[in-house]
Amino acid sequence: MDLATRATPPPATTIHRSGRLRTGGAELSWHTAQATTPVVFVHGSFDDHTSWDGVVPLLPPGVTAVRYDRRGHSGSSAPGRTVIHEHVDDLVAVINELTGGSAHVVGHSYGALVALMAAARHPEPVRSVLVHEPPVFPLLAGDPVGEPMREAARAHVGTVAAYIEAGRAEDAVALFAEKVAFGEHWRELFAGPQRAMLAANARTFLEQFRDPDHYALDLAALAAGPVPITFTVGTDGPPAVRRITGILAERLPAATVHTIVGAGHAPHLSHPAEFAAALTRHLDRTRRA
């Protein structure tokens, strides 16, 4: 899928807004297509709000899609070192300031971690969560199948960080995309301008890598909390994150798991219609609950 080709825009009756939100010393660049049911989208590593371009136009009428660049990505600033707890606080600020204090949250990869941490720490403003393959690698520790996957991913990510420190952002993106996240066909998901965007955001990935708390997910709080959770998982993605999703589903038995056939770690890019359909079913189910 060529991300430089934008999907058909929503109907003209949708109200489009954008702006900047000051929070925690940062300025977040945000964009909304406003209707009634607010859904906040949280992108993954290296990425920005444009990764949701193929999904938002496919959502049903009545959905307010709120997208923003996480601090340190594209249009958003990042004063000093960035840690995941700041990303969580930013998400809560976006919900409070742009949706009236309550919203459904969708997250991809690292953004999925942010969404789940927000649901665990601040359940009041989070109506529900749909996340795709959160990379909670510590869950693979000691697992006879998952441990080798964890070690391989750790080695690759260490090299990615070293490339970024050496000023080799494009090499870092290529290694991360091919070996950790998207597979050998990753360039089919990202056109040239999008690859440049990924490289420009590489420094924030380095801050994530250095953050000792970036995997500090409180599963007990999620299991005991009121927030409905749906995990989406692709059949063709990295084996490590597929296994992590399975472990999360075991630890959170109330959660729903939806498999997207043929998709990998980025169904919102490769299979936007299927991802939008999964989100629509999730919203319908949580509204009925």
Rank of each mutant, 00 (worst) to 15 (best):
R67M: 10
S51A: 15
A169G: 07
V66E: 06
L116R: 03
L58C: 14
A161R: 04
T82K: 11
V126Y: 01
P144C: 00
A166S: 10
A177L: 12
L59S: 11
R154I: 13
V56S: 10
H104E: 06
V173K: 00
R154D: 14
R71T: 08
A177D: 05
H85L: 14
L140Q: 02
G101H: 12
G111R: 05
V63S: 05
S77T: 14
N96E: 15
S109N: 03
G62H: 10
L58K: 10
G62N: 11
G111A: 11
Y110D: 03
S74R: 15
E133T: 01
G80F: 14
V145E: 06
V92M: 13
A166R: 05
S51K: 09
A169S: 11
T50Q: 07
E86K: 11
V180I: 14
L58V: 10
E178K: 07
A120P: 09
D53A: 15
V114C: 08
V83W: 13
E133N: 02
F182S: 10
P57V: 03
A174D: 08
D143N: 12
P57F: 04
V66T: 12
M149A: 06
F176P: 02
M149N: 05
G62R: 11
V131E: 03
P135C: 02
D48C: 13
P134Y: 01
H156Q: 15
V160A: 05
F182N: 06
W52Q: 01
V106E: 01
A115S: 03
H104K: 15
A162E: 05
A169P: 02
E86D: 13
V92I: 15
A155K: 13
G167D: 08
E165G: 09
A169T: 12
T82L: 15
H49N: 14
A152G: 02
E147V: 04
L139T: 05
A103Y: 01
P125F: 01
S109C: 12
R70E: 02
D90K: 07
R121D: 13
H122A: 02
L130R: 03
P138D: 08
S77F: 12
A181N: 03
R67D: 02
D69K: 13
H132Y: 01
S128F: 04
H73N: 15
G75T: 11
V63R: 07
G75Y: 13
E151K: 12
Y163I: 07
L116G: 08
A152R: 07
D90T: 08
H104A: 07
S109D: 01
V129K: 00
T50M: 12
H73W: 08
Y110C: 10
V66M: 14
L139R: 03
A166L: 11
A93W: 01
V56P: 10
G183M: 08
H49C: 09
L91W: 06
V106K: 07
V94D: 00
E124T: 14
A103V: 03
R121A: 12
I95M: 00
F46H: 07
L98I: 01
V160R: 03
R168G: 09
A155F: 13
R154C: 15
V157K: 09
A118L: 07
M117S: 06
A115F: 04
D47V: 13
R168L: 10
T159S: 09
A65T: 05
T82Q: 15
V63N: 06
P123A: 00
P60R: 11
E86P: 10
E165T: 12
G111I: 05
P144A: 00
